[in-house]
């Protein structure tokens, strides 16, 4: 066989195998975290199947409660439109997590509560909120 044909066949063969590989990984991920459905709060309140999902929303004002025994444990309400979802999370919270923050949670919905094992905040490359007039600054009590 002419070397040119050999090369054409090898390259084509490799490309086909590679494309099949990429396709195969897309449909058969080894890890359940590889591809996760992103659904709305309303959708999750209606479904019953115990599938790992990802949900985005806003932390409802004043809903953050820290566990009294374990400060790594937090419960809050996720708000999306007019739908509310109670969420529980144990672990290190991102620095930007607070009331009103836009967050993404990933985990399982069980018995009326969402058990998240991933909690991310949308990274604000700038501070939200409006520019403000000169206001007095006081050192109040600090909490996190």
């Amino acid at each position: 066989m002419a070397p040119k044909n050999k090369i054409v066949i090898t390259v084509t063969g490799f490309t086909l195998v590679a494309l099949f590989w990429i396709y195969w990984v897309s449909v058969n991920p080894i890890d359940e975290r590889a591809m996760v459905k992103f659904i709305s709060v309303q959708e999750i309140l209606q479904t019953e199947d115990n599938e790992r999902v990802r949900i985005g929303g806003v932390v409802a004002d004043g809903s953050i409660t820290l566990s009294s025994t374990n400060k790594l444990e937090v419960a809050f309400t996720l708000k999306e439109g007019d739908s509310f979802l109670p969420v529980e999370f144990i672990g290190t919270r991102p620095d930007l997590f607070k009331n009103g923050a836009e967050v993404i949670v990933e985990g399982l919905y069980q018995e009326g509560s969402f058990h998240a094992d991933i909690l991310q905040t949308k990274c604000a490359s700038r501070y939200e909120g409006d520019l403000r007039d000169a206001s007095s600054y006081n050192l109040n009590e600090i909490e996190i």
């Binding site: 890890d31 975290r33 996760v36 992103f38």
Partner: peptide, 12 residues
């Protein structure tokens, strides 16, 4: 349906 693709996919 919106799907998020995580690091496990890219690594695999």
């Amino acid at each position: 349906t919106k799907i998020t693709v995580g690091p496990p996919f890219f690594n695999q």
